[in-house]
């Protein structure tokens, strides 16, 4: 308990500093209001604060990761087996014809992708959340590692996580699928129809594919992959769980089960489309000229 002398000194301290305290209180309230006003400001401030808190978050995440090593190993082993199978096919092709086939070199599910335009970086998750309407993921790679805004982020088995929206020197912030401001094109497998994928913050396991043409050949279990310049082809978003035509019967809206387990992501791959800037500036130019 405070005795009278301590209470008196406390009152004196408050009397001497109340203007500064009031200023700090009002400034923090204003900054907090501004920081939470948009996803952009949230991500930018998260990138700045992570420069300070990143090491602590990283250590805590490392401990948690220790207990999920077995499942990560299973995924990596599977990827290794696929890579070895492809290598064997290449060796066989070399022996029989003396030439390499593109089919041998490229991933089977994305033969139409020009992989030379993509660069890959490995990263680890420092912190993430799935319980808010606007979730973010912080990675342990930043500007110093060549990471820039707009790079794609996927799991090691090529499932969509999100894309980078802010970077500090050593860390970067990802706008993930589980953020209500996230939007990406989603293409239905077995066709060229696409719609817009978004999250309604109801469940971390489901997202919505809207504005899908009523002529699309949709069925329960159909895979939906990313349709965006940021990502290579074949990046899996999820599978159709249920679907229905809208009230005007002009388009489908489908509920997708998210492919990546967003609550346990740890190792991720950052993908840079080296042509992305060129595509964006071309698009900007066209919009300016014809809008």
């Amino acid at each position: 308990m405070f005795d009278n002398g301590k209470m008196y000194r406390l009152f004196l301290f408050i009397k001497r500093t109340y203007v500064i305290l009031l200023f700090l209180l009002l400034e923090i309230a204003a900054l907090n209001r501004y920081a939470s006003s948009t996803a952009y400001t949230q991500a930018k401030i998260l990138a700045r604060t992570t420069a300070v808190t990143g090491a602590v978050n990283g250590a805590v995440t490392d401990v948690g990761h220790y207990f999920s090593l077995s499942s990560e190993n299973a995924v990596l082993t599977e990827r290794l087996a696929m890579a070895e199978a492809r290598l064997a096919a290449v060796a066989e092709s070399e022996q029989s014809t003396g030439a390499l086939s593109a089919d041998d070199l490229l991933p089977a599910d994305s033969l139409s992708t020009d992989w030379a335009q993509y660069q890959f970086y490995a990263a680890r998750v420092v912190s993430s959340s799935t319980d808010k309407p606007r979730n973010f993921v912080v990675l342990n790679r930043g500007l110093a590692d060549g990471i820039r805004e707009d790079m794609a982020v996927v799991t090691p088995d090529m499932k969509l996580i999100g894309y980078i929206v802010a970077c500090s020197e050593r860390y970067s912030v990802v706008l993930p699928l589980l953020n209500t401001t996230f939007r990406v094109g989603g293409r239905l497998s077995g066709g060229n129809h696409f719609g817009s994928v978004s999250w309604d913050a109801r469940s971390p396991y489901y997202v919505t594919l809207g504005e899908l043409s009523k002529y699309a050949d949709i069925s329960r279990g159909s895979a939906v992959t990313v349709y965006s310049e940021r990502f290579p082809e074949g990046i899996l978003i999820g599978h159709v769980e249920e679907y229905a035509l809208n009230s005007a019967e002009t388009a489908y809206s489908a509920r997708l089960k998210v492919a990546a387990d967003m609550s346990s992501i740890y190792n991720v791959i950052i993908i840079e489309n080296t042509h992305y800037g060129e595509v964006e500036s071309l698009l900007d130019d066209a919009v300016k000229r014809y809008n």
Partner: peptide, 20 residues
């Protein structure tokens, strides 16, 4: 100004240090 412009705290946060 934050309310009218929809800037949510930006005007207040930049004006308070000036007052100080």
């Amino acid at each position: 100004l934050d309310g009218v412009t929809g800037c949510q705290g930006l005007y207040t946060a930049s004006l308070l240090p000036l007052a100080m």
